[in-house]
Nucleic acid binder design. Structure first.
Length: 573
RNA sequence: AGCGGGGUGGGGUAGUCAGGAGAUCCCGCGGGGCUCAUAACCCCGAGAUCGGUGGUUCAAAUCCACCCCCCGCUACCA
């Protein structure tokens, strides 16, 4: 039960999008939709939940991209931050606060972290060999140096990793290095860096990880990280020269020395909460320093930042509540192939959101998000068939047949049930069980099971409705049969109500419309009962969903194959 | 190479941790029905020796060993 929190105070974070390109379906799938669905579920249960996020705005890729487009880094970051926020809002991601890492709050917290860590003996200085460009008069971070891969000989590879052979290149090992700005070979200099003593936390981290249940952190994620620790943690260089980021708060730091982006990024979660606190007058320390379930939603690519560096930072500073829950999703492949920015094999959120309702995307992607690091495929044809078959035909049509039936034959008034037979009781029992099971799967953030279970329930509901055939009774008008029909409709609308609440976190705007048609409001507890009473008057029903045509999705596939799809940002500005 | 995840009817999947009744559900396919509903819905049927081999057991998709195949990750990349 979510680590047994009785207090029901929850802080949800979604990984901060890096503010140098637009977002695509993969981001939505791995992080934002799961985090939002969970947050909405918590709110339905009336828990005290705060959902924070913000843009990640520092680092070399941003300063390079800014330079290339002739913008100042801050300007560049503002530009993408606004575009990302717009997409996330259209997707229906219900942040309580969306902030940024290049903010006063984050600067203060980052400095506090650094000073405290040093005071506690977890920061030390060490000489590090660096590349320096004599022409540009600056130190070059890894991403600003290219050269020949020492392993496979591929040309023009970044100095930290080779894309051709996939190997990691150790600092200083790159052959024939050159500065990506002026293409001249850099010289080597040595500089005192500040190093975070990550290795000091091995035992604590191990203990902490081993205390986690598989509901808190997926088993495979724990194994992955544990193995990492056991193979020996290396200390972490958190200094960068001539960099876009915060200055180091140490008096013995040089003027051109800055904080590495991955150090201040996770602190951005706290900064966003502090900023929320200022806006709402609520105490941020209740969430970060009190008894609170902190849940991080991340993609599988940033597991070690969130399960090693980040908790070690919090342990080292002291006084903070450690994260309790991690929800990790894998990557999204597209039509069976890996997504790729350079190959233009991806779907920008802006594009899908222009063509389809956000709830369609949420429904389809949530049906694949199972809190597991294994990858999932996005296929346009499957998208169409799931939307048309499950959402429109199975779910939407059931809602419509029940509501129009009540509307037409009972004058919009929910009829009084008569005696219940075995079928009635069985159906009621089965959908009550649905709510229970779905609740558990929501807590585990296995939304694919949630969707699966609800579809199953609607299937049963359609069957029940057909077996009961209330239309016959209503036409023939025999007393007993009319009463049976009334019972069936009474049960059906109660099922529909419970199911709408179960679906609400996943497709909120459609379910809000459905609840409005039912003239009812949502709360998790009322889904567990027969809440809609006889005599309750519903509103005018209208179809909930429209179908997707084959032409629409084929056009998307064609656009992909033609290479006409572009993601704004990074290399194709 | 190491580590991790996975291979279940045409496609996609549940079940595997705590072995046992006809192996789940969705799509697709064949047949029938209904007409309240967005040509939606319901019922019946065909179709899987649960990657391979061997072992443990009264009993294995589920446990053990070995092998084959696919995928992911490997630290300063946000």
């Amino acid at each position: 039960m979510l680590g047994g929190i009785a207090l029901r105070r929850v802080l949800v974070t979604a990984a901060l999008p890096y503010a140098n390109s637009d977002l695509h379906l993969g981001h939505a799938f791995s992080t934002y939709i799961p985090a939002d669905v969970f947050s909405r579920f918590c709110r339905l249960r009336k828990w005290d939940v705060v959902f924070v996020c913000g843009s990640d705005e520092h680092g070399t890729p941003i300063s390079i991209a800014a330079k290339e487009t002739g913008r100042a880094p801050l300007e560049h970051v503002e530009y993408f931050r606004r575009r990302q926020m717009e997409d996330l809002e259209r997707l229906g991601i219900s942040f309580d606060n969306y902030y940024r890492t290049h903010s006063e709050e984050n600067r203060e917290l980052t400095e506090e972290f650094l000073l405290k860590l040093r005071e506690n003996g977890y920061i030390y200085k060490k000489k590090v060999a660096l590349f320096y460009c004599e022409t540009d008069k600056m130190y070059l971070p890894d991403r600003m140096i290219k050269g020949k891969c020492p392993y496979c000989g591929a040309e023009d590879q970044y100095s930290d990793a080779c894309e051709a052979c996939g190997r990691t290149i150790e600092p200083g090992m790159i052959l024939e290095p050159y500065c990506i700005l002026c293409r001249t070979p850099p010289s080597t200099r040595s500089e005192e860096h500040f190093i975070f003593k990550l290795s000091a936390f091995s035992d604590k981290l191990l203990k902490w990880l081993e205390s986690k249940s598989s509901e808190d952190v997926p088993r495979d994620v724990v194994n992955y990280v544990v193995q990492w620790i056991k193979s020996g943690l290396q200390d972490w260089d958190i200094t960068r020269e001539d960099y876009w980021g915060f200055k180091l708060p140490y008096e013995d730091a040089k003027d051109n020395q800055y904080v590495y982006v991955w150090f201040d990024a996770p602190i951005g979660y706290i900064a966003s909460t502090v900023n929320w606190s200022k806006k709402t007058g609520r105490e941020w320390k209740n969430y970060w320093m009190g008894d609170c379930l902190i849940a991080h939603f991340i993609g599988k690519d940033i597991v070690y930042h969130h399960l090693l560096f980040w908790p070690a930072m919090l342990m080292g500073v002291g006084g903070y509540t450690l994260p309790s829950k991690y929800v990790v999703n894998g990557y999204l492949t597209l039509e069976g192939r890996k997504m790729s920015k350079s190959r233009k094999w991806l779907v920008p959120l802006k594009r899908v959101l222009d063509k389809f309702p956000a709830d369609y995307i949420r429904f389809y992607l949530a049906s694949k998000a199972s809190n597991s690091t294994s990858d999932n495929d996005f296929s346009w044809l499957e998208f169409m068939s799931k939307i048309n078959g499950d959402l429109v035909d199975n779910i939407g049509n059931f809602a419509h047949r029940v509501l129009t039936f009540i509307s037409r034959w009972f004058k919009r008034k929910v009829p009084s049930p008569g005696d219940m037979d075995e079928q009635d009781n069985e159906f009621i029992f089965s959908f009550m069980r649905m709510v229970e099971e779905v609740e558990k799967e929501y807590e585990n953030c296995d939304f694919s099971q949630v969707v699966r279970r609800i579809i199953e329930a609607f299937k049963k509901a359609n069957s029940y409705f057909t077996v009961k055939a209330p239309w016959e009774a209503v036409k023939k008008g025999e007393e007993k049969r009319r009463s049976d029909a009334a019972t069936a409709l009474y049960i059906c609308i109660n099922f529909l109500y419970s199911a709408a609440i179960c679906l609400y976190p996943i497709i909120p705007s459609s379910m809000a419309r459905l609840l409005e048609m039912m003239n009812a409001s949502a709360s998790w507890d009322s889904a567990k009962r027969l809440t809609i009473e006889a005599g309750h008057v519903i509103n005018e029903p209208k179809p909930l969903f429209r179908k997707i045509s084959e032409d629409e999705v084929k056009a998307e596939i064609r656009a992909l194959e033609d290479g006409t799809i572009n993601l704004k940002g990074v290399n194709n500005e």
